[in-house]
Every structure is written in structure tokens, then in C-alpha cells.
Design a protein around this nucleic acid. Structure first.
Length: 747
RNA sequence: GGACAAUUAGCUCAGUUGGUUAGAGCGCACGAUUCACAUUCGUGAGGUCACAAGUUCGAGUCUUGUAUUGUCCACCA
């Protein structure tokens, strides 16, 4: 006899263990093979590569969403008898993780500067190892029917090798180059970012009007004036015609200097005074202008360093942090009578680091870039050929827009937690490289390689190495292996997205023999729309580049999970839902149902306590309907009418529901499928049919069949309670298949 | 400035080839109950489907425009 209430807690862990014990999630196990044998779809492969969560972080509700949706797809495909695999993994999450680790170091009174890069890497490795079981255990708790024997981590040796091989191949194909351009540099995090990783924040600031010789010009960044190498006006601006091409004398804070006036139509004559100072190394527009007028203008000057301080060129302001330097400069300009006025109500957008929120500095840095044009074109072609379907409320158009406008991809990051670039500098040819290392006395030493070698051996430098900045003209070798004793490896690591963009094929190439041929291209990529361009777009580019095929046929994008009122979840608002707490309190099935029911691809979804309760109630309802059917069988087994009045109608309706749900699932209408099942089960099967069966209008065996059908149809959505009930039926010998997870989908 | 969405019951949201009386959860009102389930059951109230025009025998659904909200991108120093 079943309990009156279904207690999720008493069943879930046991059931998950049973699935694992029977190897239900592996496509190679006996139980899976048996299921395939019975199916007409055994030749179809169905694979999903799990978006690897950050190995270091506990799961949030967004993870619960992807686990739910992907598990539904996988369980459905598996029950259909397809050759099904879901490959799980975790991500080293370069910047995220190093940022968290550095915060921890700071609490201990240390920083990344105290350690050589190898020691620091090892410390982070150990830290991540300690925590990485948490994410995996939580994914399991959410019922994920992933094949854990195929689990991968982005820093696994074989993965790293394949990722760097791809880079080497790209280099051979002429897709890699090194360039000295402005990058988005975060002085706080100590690394450059791609354009995609920069946030923009509206701010109120001041616009300063400053005297520049015969001109007055407006700027928000007076502290960069020491890096000015020219002035620009609009070519048609009548006010300034006579100055174009002239050199003018400017009174400055560090003495007088000369600037050439150029004409360029990027200048808006209506903004400020229509005169712009050109500071190529600290402003993207100015850099572009300098490149257009290279022959007219002198070499740019770097006035801000990588720690956010003014350089020696700034004279008495050298070493000051930007904000302080700005105040000082303004004060001094005012004293000298060079400050004309300040517009204090100026409003603009400031670029900030998406990670730490501090201002991003445009700074010149030699970095490795990937030419993207041929890659994006190949993706567009595949889309045009209809090889990729996007489910997600207009995001296909956004994807296309990105593919058409994407700029070359800066893949160098100045952090240690990642895959080191397979770039090698020959020592004797790069004696002018700038090196920072920890010497044997634990002192941090910086300087030119040639100078450092006078006091230290190359082994000492290599062992304590923190950073190499080779000149843009530097010779380098690209090689998987260390080319020899007289080489130093580049200290930059790959952008995390460079490795994760290869995830679909690296996880298959470096897995069980034959997996790549068997499961690639994967069927569906399911992830949140907010990483469409970071990840999905790049997976398409890299997948097609490396394999000639799209890495997946379908892209299902889910939205943000919001709170009950539709507000974004955030720690500061205190409205963050911890999926694990919900799972403990109401059951994993309740959580899953609340997330998926009536959800729509590409649209945000709000959930709250009421939704979780509704989910829990469904589990209980299912449990009790089963309880009723089992009880009445025991009590009434001998004496049941064979043909009842509503039998035929019942069968037809059941068939229709099966057909509808199957169709919904096949067309990625997961939210509709869940809604249909919820309503038909509760309001038709329970409220109507069970009541009618009590009156003898529906045959009891038929009711059992109906229950079994609903258990199967509901199983992908709420796997635990359906399996728990199935096991009760199995005890009574009422089912053929021992395990619901590995049973066939109804027709 | 550009693009993409959304707008349906008090709240949060479904409604995919246009087709009877537009649905769910929660909330609300009234009632029931030792009979599988109070994590229950029954009955009910509540909607000019943002607005306007158009296509059509027929529009929540298609077209155009407007408004509001949101997201993404770009950005003038």
C-alpha cells in the first residue's frame, strides 16, 4: 500500500542511484541497447552536449532550467529508441574563476603578484578541484540523465591538446595574426577583454572645455592630454579651415608643445567646439583616426599604464591613478587660466568591466587575433541552406546580424587560469622582451630580458615567470611541444570562449572510440539566449571550420528565469531562488515542472513559490491516482465488467493526447507539452475518468493502461515520481519493462 | 541612433499552418468531504486578447501604423 502523500525526498536519491546502477544513461549499456532493438528509430542518433557550467560554482536557477529542458529532450529521444547520449562537462571559466580566487587571496592579504604563474595556476587548480564535485552532484540531483562515463572538463589534457591543435591549424590556414591595437583593458582584473565582454554604464560626468592654442576644445578625459599627438576638425568646418594642415603651439602643464591639425569627417562640428584632441593610445576613435592619418601624425604616446596609472611621460603626474590625476590636472589648468568652463550636466556611457564593474581603459597591447570573416561566412551559408534551425523568439535575426558585423576576435587574455597559448619566443632573438618574474629571494622583478639575464639564469626566470611582453615585431614559433631550452612560452592564455567554442567536437573526439562519427553533428544545442554571441555563434564558426559540418542542427534558446513578480533575480534584491532548496523542499520534479510548464523558447519566465507548490501537487496527484488504481485492483480484481460504456472514447482520447504531446516535443514545444499533460492528466484522467471508472463506465485494466501511458508521457518532465510509481507497478508485475527511464515511448 | 521582442483574467503566463463558447497556476466568492488525494473535490465571478486601420465568409493569430515596456547593439571627444 502506498503512502497517502508522495514524499519526494524519500525517493529521489534512491531512484537516481538505481538508474546509474542499471547504466540507463549510457547508450552502450545492455538496457539501452535492448530499448533500441525494439525501436524503428535505432539508427537515428540523438545527442546533446551539455553547456558546461563553471566547475567552481554551485548551480543557480538558470542551470536548473537547462538541465530540465535538455533532460526532457534526452529522455524523450531515449524512450523513442534513438541512439541517445547527453555528454556532461564543466568549464574552467577563466576570468570568472581567477577573479573569485583573487578575492580569496586578497582576504589572506595576498595577490596574484606574489606568485609565479605556474604556482598560481596550481593553486587555482586545487581550489577548483575542491569545489568541482558540487556542481556535478547538483546536476545529478536535478535528475540529469547524462552519461557520466563521458564526462569532460575544459582543462583535461586531451581537450587542451585538441584546442591548441585547432589554433595551430588556424595559424597554418592564415587565420591567426598578432597586432598591436587598442584593447579593452581592465586594470583591476589585469587583462584585456573582447568587445562582447564590455558593459556600458550611463553616467553623469563633466565635460571640460580647455584652451589649446588658438582653440578651445571639449573633453571628458583631460588627464590623457599628455598623450595627444594631434588635433582634428571636420573638413568642411568653416571656422577652422585655415588651421588644417598647420602646426599650432599649445601651452601645456608640462611646458609648451606643438600639435598638427588634421581634417577628418569623424569629427562632429556640432559637438563641443568642433575640435577634437587626438589621443590614439587611449581612445578607439582617436586610434582609428590616427591610422587614417599615419603619415601626417607622429607616433602615439602611451600615457596610462596597465595598472591604471599615468606613465613617466606625464611628468609630475606620473604614477597617479586616473581619477586623481584628472582632479589634479583640472586644478592646475584652472590656475594657469587654461580651463575655459566645465559642463557639469554632461551625460554619457562609460565602458566598464563586466566582471568587476571598474572602468575599462582602451590601451595598446600586442594580442593574437583570429580573422573571423571566412568563419562567419561559412555559418551564414549553412543557415541559408537551412541546416540550422533556431528556436527562440527572434534571436535567429540577432544571430545573423552578429555574423554579418563581427570584428576580428582577440583571443589573448592576461590571466593564468586557462589554456596557455602555444607560442614560443626564442630568447636570443627577443632580448628586448619585457619580463616580470619572481626571483629566488621572492622579489618581483621587471625589466628587459637582456638585462635580467645578467643577474639571473634563464631557468630562474622561467621558474618564476609571471609575464612576458614581447614587442610587436617579435619572432615567435607556434608549437604544441616545447621547442627547446632557449625558448620562453607566451604567458597569455586563450579566451575561455576559444576553448568552449570547440566544445561540441572536442568532447566527442576525445571520448569513447567512434563517438565523433556516431554523434556528430549533435542534434540540439540548448542554452540561454544571453550567451548566443559569446558561445553559440562561435561554436558554429569553429565547428564548421574544424569539421566542415554544423556542430548542431537545432538551437533552442531559453530565457531568463525571473521571480514571481517578473523581476530579475539579484543578490541585492534578495529574490534569488536557489534551485537546490526548492528541490529539497518540494522535490526536483516540482522544480522542473514549474520551470518548463508554459515556458516558451527565447522568452523569459517567471517562477515563484506558487508554481513550485503547483508542481509538488501534481506529483502528489499522480501518486494518488496510482494509489487509487492499485487499491481498486486489489479489492475488485475478480468482478470487473469487460466492456464499459466509455471505453472506446477513453482509448481515442488517450491516443490523441499521446499524439499531441509527441508532436509538441518533436517541434520543441516543451512548455505546451507540459501544459497539455498537466491539464489532461489532472482534469481529464483524474477528475473525469477516475470518477467514471468508479461508476463502472471505464474498464479498470484500461485505466491502468491509461496510467502507464501518462507515466511515460510525463516521465521526461517529472522523472522521479513517475519512476517511483513505475517501480510500485513493477512490484505487482503490472509492467513489462523494469525501468521506466529505459522503456519505450507510447504510440 | 539601429535592431529584436513583448503587450491576453486581479497577478504570472500559455495559446505555431486564421475556424465553435479564448485557457492554466495562484488569488477571489460560495459549497462539499470519514468514499485515491485538504498537496482534495464541485460551482461561480473575472477578458472590447494595448490601440487604430486593413486582408478575409471568419482575426488573439496575418498586414500596416501608433503607443507603452523590455532586451541587445552602436555611440560625440
Amino acid at each position: 500500500m502506498l503512502d497517502k502523500q508522495y514524499q519526494a525526498k524519500d525517493h529521489e536519491a534512491k531512484i537516481y542511484k538505481m538508474w546509474l546502477d542499471h547504466d540507463c544513461f549510457s547508450p552502450d549499456s545492455e538496457i539501452s541497447q535492448n530499448l533500441n532493438k525494439k525501436s524503428k528509430k535505432a539508427n537515428e542518433s540523438f545527442s546533446i552536449i551539455m553547456p558546461p557550467p563553471n566547475a567552481n560554482d554551485p548551480l543557480h536557477v538558470g542551470h536548473a532550467m537547462f538541465v530540465t529542458l535538455e533532460d526532457i529532450m534526452i529522455r524523450f529521444a531515449r524512450m523513442q529508441g534513438k541512439d541517445t547520449v547527453w555528454i556532461p562537462g564543466t568549464d574552467h571559466a577563466g576570468i570568472e574563476t581567477q577573479f573569485v580566487f583573487e578575492k580569496k587571496l586578497k582576504k589572506e592579504g595576498k595577490s596574484r603578484f606574489n606568485f609565479d604563474r605556474e604556482t598560481l595556476f596550481k593553486m587555482i587548480w586545487d581550489y577548483v578541484s575542491e569545489n568541482s564535485a558540487v556542481a556535478v552532484d547538483q546536476i545529478k540531483q536535478l535528475g540529469a540523465s547524462a552519461d557520466w562515463s563521458r564526462y569532460k572538463f575544459t582543462l583535461d589534457k586531451d581537450i587542451v591538446e585538441t584546442v591548441t591543435e585547432t589554433f595551430i591549424k588556424m595559424n597554418q590556414d592564415g587565420l591567426v595574426y598578432r597586432a598591436n591595437r587598442l584593447v579593452n583593458f581592465c586594470p583591476k582584473c589585469g587583462t584585456a577583454f573582447s568587445n562582447l565582454e564590455v558593459d556600458h554604464k550611463e553616467q553623469d560626468t563633466s565635460l571640460y572645455y580647455i584652451k589649446y592654442g588658438p582653440f578651445t576644445l571639449a573633453t571628458t578625459r583631460p588627464e590623457t592630454k599628455f598623450g595627444d599627438t594631434g588635433l582634428a576638425v571636420h573638413p568642411d568646418d568653416k571656422r577652422y579651415q585655415k588651421y588644417i594642415g598647420q602646426e599650432i603651439e599649445v601651452e601645456g602643464l608640462n611646458g609648451n608643445f606643438k600639435l598638427k591639425v588634421i581634417a577628418d569627417d569623424f569629427v562632429d562640428p556640432k559637438f563641443g567646439t568642433g575640435v577634437v584632441k587626438i589621443t590614439p593610445y587611449h581612445d578607439f576613435n582617436d586610434f582609428a583616426a590616427w591610422q587614417r592619418h599615419k603619415d601626417e601624425l607622429p607616433e602615439p604616446i602611451q600615457i596610462v599604464d596597465f595598472e591604471g596609472r599615468l606613465t613617466a611621460t606625464a611628468g609630475k603626474y606620473a604614477g597617479l591613478k586616473i581619477a586623481i590625476a584628472r582632479e589634479q590636472v583640472i586644478k592646475d589648468l584652472e590656475e594657469k587660466g587654461l580651463l575655459v568652463k566645465i559642463d557639469k550636466n554632461y551625460h554619457n556611457n562609460l565602458s566598464v568591466c563586466y566582471r568587476c564593474g571598474n572602468p575599462i581603459e582602451p590601451l595598446p597591447l600586442p594580442q593574437f587575433y583570429i580573422k573571423v570573416k571566412s568563419l562567419t561566412n561559412s555559418v551564414i551559408k549553412k543557415i541559408d541552406q537551412g541546416e540550422i534551425k533556431v528556436f527562440g523568439a527572434g534571436h535567429d535575426k540577432i544571430l545573423r546580424h552578429w555574423l554579418e558585423t563581427l570584428e576580428d576576435w582577440n583571443i589573448s587574455r592576461q590571466i593564468v587560469w586557462g589554456i596557455r597559448l602555444p607560442i614560443w619566443y626564442e630568447i636570443d632573438k627577443n632580448l628586448d622582451a619585457q619580463i616580470t618574474f619572481i626571483d629566488q629571494e621572492k622579489n618581483r622583478v621587471s625589466g628587459k630580458l637582456a638585462d635580467l639575464l645578467k643577474e639571473n639564469s634563464i631557468e630562474e626566470i622561467r621558474a618564476g615567470l609571471q609575464n612576458i611582453s614581447a614587442r610587436i615585431e617579435a619572432n615567435y614559433l607556434i608549437s604544441q611541444e616545447n621547442p627547446g631550452e632557449r625558448y620562453l612560452q607566451e604567458t597569455d592564455t586563450f579566451d575561455t570562449w576559444f576553448s568552449s567554442s570547440q566544445w561540441p567536437f572536442v568532447t566527442l573526439i576525445n571520448n569513447k572510440p567512434g563517438d565523433f562519427e556516431r554523434f556528430y553533428p549533435t542534434n540540439t544545442m540548448e542554452t540561454a539566449y544571453d550567451i548566443l554571441m559569446f558561445w553559440v555563434m562561435r561554436m558554429l564558426m569553429m565547428g564548421i571550420y574544424k569539421t566542415g559540418q554544423t556542430p548542431f542542427k537545432n538551437i533552442y534558446l531559453h530565457g531568463l528565469i525571473r521571480d514571481a513578480k517578473g523581476l530579475k533575480m539579484s543578490k541585492s534584491k534578495g529574490n534569488v531562488v536557489n534551485p537546490m532548496e526548492i528541490s529539497e523542499k518540494y522535490g526536483t520534479d516540482a522544480l522542473r515542472m514549474a520551470l518548463v510548464i508554459r515556458s516558451s523558447a527565447g522568452l523569459d519566465k517567471s517562477v515563484g513559490d506558487a508554481d513550485f507548490k503547483a508542481g509538488r501537487n501534481l506529483s502528489n496527484k499522480l501518486w494518488n491516482a496510482s494509489r487509487f488504481i492499485l487499491i481498486t485492483r486489489e479489492e475488485n480484481q475478480v468482478n470487473q465488467p469487460i466492456n464499459c460504456a466509455h471505453d472506446q472514447v477513453f482509448k481515442e482520447k488517450l491516443k490523441q493526447i499521446t499524439k499531441d504531446v509527441t508532436k509538441n516535443l518533436e517541434s520543441f514545444q516543451l512548455g505546451v507539452a507540459a501544459d497539455t499533460l498537466y491539464n489532461e492528466f489532472w482534469h481529464w484522467f483524474c477528475d473525469q475518468c477516475i470518477e467514471e471508472s468508479k461508476k463502472g463506465l471505464i474498464n479498470q485494466d484500461l485505466m491502468l493502461d491509461g496510467l502507464k501511458t501518462f507515466l511515460k508521457l510525463l516521465h521526461p518532465f517529472i522523472p522521479f515520481v513517475t519512476e517511483a510509481i513505475w517501480q510500485e507497478l513493477a512490484k505487482e508485475n503490472l509492467v513489462e519493462d523494469k525501468i521506466l527511464t529505459s522503456s519505450a515511448w507510447p504510440e
